[in-house]
Design a protein around this nucleic acid. Structure first.
Length: 831
RNA sequence: GCCGGGGUGGCGGAACUGGGAGACGCGGCGGACUUAAAACCCGCUGGCCUGCAAAGGCCGUGGGGGUUCGAUUCCCCCCCUCGGCACCA
């Protein structure tokens, strides 16, 4: 864009650079522990150093900075740090594509993005910057890994995992979205592989319980976490097999047991081999297993897919009814949930119904159907038990309890709670991550690294091909080591940790970023933790946010921190949309923050991203809207500069008695302060807070015009000054540079951000008169102005007597008059 | 299928606890300034209708019903849409 077609604008580039330097020179945003003041830990999710910031970053950091500056002005000791989520695959892919070492690529990106963030003028304490690929950072997570290993919270096992063929690595369940890799969208395949796991399932109950104890979190995030954890109550019991070993069954509907007409095992269930004796049957089972294994993850999750199964020769006995029932292996039963085997009750489970219909199996209803029920599907509702022996006549809930009691009495089973949540697979067969501090000794076996030999540093010299296998396995100097226990020959683990491990505790490291005695200095953590306000995208609802909650609880149990939960409140901000789609290079709808700041300045970019939508909603980017934001800041700038002589330098004393117009204007000033404060504090409605400031500026112009020729000069000056100062203070957290500059122009020598947030003068809010709306039968027919002290009967009389109202009452009888003091009167009539 | 969010002017969005629907901004229209344009400043701007005008009427918050003096707001049913989970026994 050529410079000369830009509208005339205040010199934002000079101002922004100037104040960024001043704030930095003064170390104005340095956070120091101070037990005498209330603390506020304000945190935005740190970025992955991908190369450049995008509009989503601008939005989240504008929100965070608004809150940090606002809380500072409200008297809190604010911690507002920034760092880099620096490990991860894109760095490795860049190495493969361009031959740049991941470390070089990452550090170059960090350097550039740091300058971008500085140009936004965010109030970070840069002295606390944390970079997760730094050995001084990840050494502590290696130490915690060892502690977790010692307690069985980190363990290794071979199991079926999600493998991304493109990223050439394992993915955690949380990183698979509808059968595809969360990063590259490739179809995920199943593989049996050795890997390291964190025992997040040990914390399922606590993670779930705290979902109800975090009122500062959005309900939708908590719902997603609850669903992800997926608690279900039921019973586990042993299903006897004729002449064979019993099969463990989990069910949430023990009340329906009398309706169990067959049972099903997952194809890969280990008991299947013991149940199959005949070589011919064995071959059929093997063929069926191959058939199931061949289907991709996508096919597996496809809806309404016909259920395939194979009937076994072995038969089981329904312990409730005593009847012999057939046994199947079928693809609709998952080895990874419950016990990998189910009792099938087609009458009350749709999946079992579908399978029973397809295989001609009997269906016995065990809950009485409602009269209008059409019997073409399973019935899952409540009702009275039937066909159920000693459970007959009970409700479903009663029968569940009684069935469990019976199982316990028979010694067959017990009540059981199951979770959908699986352990967190943290092994990655990639280079750019924190090494797992484990060695394999020829004599001692699997041994954790000695703590005094930490960190296990990621070796710089490595060949990254992306062709599969952990690149570290080819680095002889890394792999070959001595056993920490016996000193003999040992090999190092060559998998690295999932980068979500680093982001599970970075907020703790900010409390004492260079502490050398451990992960975190307890005193600092006890002062700052937990994070009071966390801000970030909804995409992490069950990824980072669940992992960080889990990891914090582990650190608590390792006695490293004293908090149960890391984040007291969460603000989950929406995406930035343009032309109906998320901004992306492939769609060509990207707005580059650099260009935006170049053209309009950071203050405008911030103002617009806060004004255009409430933070939790998606923000529809609109170039005209940015113009509007810029126009507003220019309007404020021009007004202050046009009135500098009148406004300053010293603040004029307000005359004791104000004119009616003066009182009305002053009420607007203080109503604005109240509205802005409430909008920010109560529900993060920054868009309406900003619109309130815009209204104040409009009122300021009106007052200026109206009082220009007034003789009450002292009143005019005092109120202009009060209004302008309020405007700048309220605007400061949104557009800090221009506010600070104009604040200085008014003659203030101290930073605006060391000033207290303006207080509402309750006396200024008082009104002498109020306007009352008069309705007849619910329709507005007139308005009357009455004294604020008017009684209900005064208001009623005035309403009934109003000239505009009376014609609507002609030839009608007044049946009722509703008076809402200060608001309206509704006259209800009868014809 | 289950769970959660949402549906308001041409557009982004606002509306306290059930009380004047459409704040604020964008866009549009008109005016002022200017040789002219941009910028800036002022005014109007949901739809339909009556009126020369002043002014006024009716309709209107996805659709239908209900509660209420009064419903964008509460209740019931339905439609659409976005997001999450998805053979979880």
């Amino acid at each position: 864009m050529p410079a000369d077609d830009r509208p005339e604008r205040y010199p934002f580039a000079d101002i922004e650079g100037k104040w960024q330097r001043v704030w930095e020179d003064r170390k104005q945003f340095r956070a120091v522990e101070d037990p005498t003041r209330p603390k506020f830990y304000c945190l935005e999710m740190f970025p992955y150093p991908s190369g450049r910031i995008h509009m989503g970053h601008v939005r989240v950091y504008a929100i965070g900075d608004l809150l940090a500056r606002f809380k500072t002005m409200r008297g809190f000791n604010v911690l507002h740090p920034m760092g880099w989520d620096a490990f991860g695959l894109p760095a490795e892919n860049a190495a493969i594509d361009n031959g740049v070492h991941p470390a070089v690529w990452t550090h170059e990106n960090i350097a550039y993005m740091r300058t971008q963030l500085r140009r936004m003028g965010i109030s970070y304490d840069w002295d606390r910057e944390v970079t997760t690929c730094d050995p001084a950072y990840y050494r502590w997570e290696q130490l915690v890994f060892i502690r977790m290993f010692e307690r069985g919270l980190a363990y290794k096992r071979r199991s079926r995992v999600n493998w991304c063929p493109s990223c050439q690595t394992v993915l955690a369940n949380e990183q698979v979205e509808a059968g595809r890799c969360w990063r590259c969208d490739s179809e995920v395949v199943a593989r049996d592989i050795d890997g390291w796991y964190f025992k997040i399932t040990d914390y399922a109950e606590e993670l779930l319980a705290w979902c109800d104890r975090l009122p500062g979190w959005p309900e939708r995030v908590m719902t997603m976490q609850r669903n992800w954890i997926g608690r279900s109550e039921g019973a586990e019991f042993t299903l006897p097999v004729v002449g064979g070993p019993g099969i463990a069954i989990f069910t949430t509907r023990p009340d329906t047991s009398f309706g169990m007409t067959y049972a099903v095992l997952a194809p890969e269930h280990p008991l299947v081999d013991q149940l199959v004796a005949d070589p011919g049957e064995r071959a059929r089972v093997e063929a069926f297993r191959r058939e199931v294994a061949a289907q991709s993850e996508i096919e597996r999750v496809a809806a309404d897919r016909p259920k395939r199964g194979l009937r076994l020769a072995a038969r089981a006995v329904n312990p409730f009814s005593g009847l012999e029932i057939p046994l199947f292996i079928a693809d609709y039963v998952l080895m990874t949930y419950g016990t990998g085997a189910i009792m099938a009750v087609p009458g009350e489970d749709q999946r079992d119904w579908d399978f029973a219909i397809a295989h001609g199996l009997p269906i016995i209803p065990t809950v009485a159907r409602p009269p209008e029920w059409v019997d073409n599907q399973a019935y899952t509702g409540d009702g009275v038990k039937i066909n159920s022996g000693f459970l007959d006549g009970l409700t479903v809930a009663e029968a569940k309890r009684k069935a469990i009691d019976w199982l316990v009495a028979q010694g067959l089973g017990r009540a059981k709670v199951n979770y959908r949540l699986r352990d967190w697979g943290i092994s990655r067969q990639r280079y750019w991550g924190a090494p797992i501090p484990i060695l394999y000794c020829e004599k001692c076996g699997m041994v954790p690294e000695r703590e005094d030999r930490l960190p296990v540093v990621l070796p710089p010299d490595v060949q990254i091909s992306g062709k599969g296998g952990s690149p570290l396995a080819d680095v002889a100097s890394f792999v070959h080591a001595t056993c920490p226990r016996c000193g003999g020959r040992a090999r190092r683990e060559t998998d690295t940790m999932d980068t979500f491990v680093e982001s599970s505790w970075y907020f703790l490291r900010y409390c004492s970023p260079s502490y050398a005695g451990g992960m975190v200095d307890r005193t600092a953590a006890e002062y700052w933790m937990p994070v009071d306000q966390y801000i970030g995208g909804i995409e992490h609802a069950v990824l980072h946010l669940l992992y960080a909650r889990f990891y914090t609880k582990v650190l608590r149990d390792l006695d490293l921190v004293a908090v149960d939960e890391p984040f007291t409140a969460l603000l989950s901000q929406g995406m930035v949309i343009k032309d109906g789609a998320k901004m992306s290079k492939s769609k060509g709808n990207v707005v580059d923050p650099d260009e935006l700041i170049e053209r309009y300045g950071a203050d405008t970019a911030r103002l617009f991203s806060l004004f255009a939508a409430p933070p939790e909603k998606d923000l529809d980017w609109n170039d005209h809207g940015v113009e509007g934001a810029s126009r507003f800041l220019n309007r404020v700038w021009r007004f202050v500069h046009a009135h500098l002589d009148e406004l300053g330098p010293a603040s004029a004393a307000r005359p004791p008695a104000l004119s009616a117009g003066g009182r009305a204007f002053r009420r607007t000033i203080h109503e604005t302060i109240r509205r802005v404060t409430e909008d920010i504090e109560k529900d993060f409605h920054f868009n309406t807070a900003i619109s309130a400031v815009m209204e104040l500026v409009n009122a300021l112009h009106d007052f200026d015009r109206a009082s220009r020729h007034s003789s009450a000069l002292a009143e005019r000056r005092a109120l202009l000054r009060e209004a302008v100062e309020a405007t700048l203070l309220l605007l400061g957290p949104v557009s800090p540079h221009v506010a600070e500059e104009l604040w200085a122009a008014l003659g203030h020598e101290e930073s605006l951000f060391t000033r207290a947030w303006p207080a509402v003068d309750e006396a200024a809010l008082a009104r002498d008169e109020v306007e009352i709306v008069v309705q007849v039968d619910g329709r507005v027919r007139g308005r009357v102005t009455v004294a604020a002290t008017a009684t209900e009967s005064d208001i009623r009389a005035r309403a009934l007597a109003d000239d505009r109202v009376r014609p609507w009452l002609a030839e009608r009888v007044v049946a009722k008059v509703v008076v809402v003091p200060g608001r309206l009167v509704n006259i209800v009539t009868r014809g």
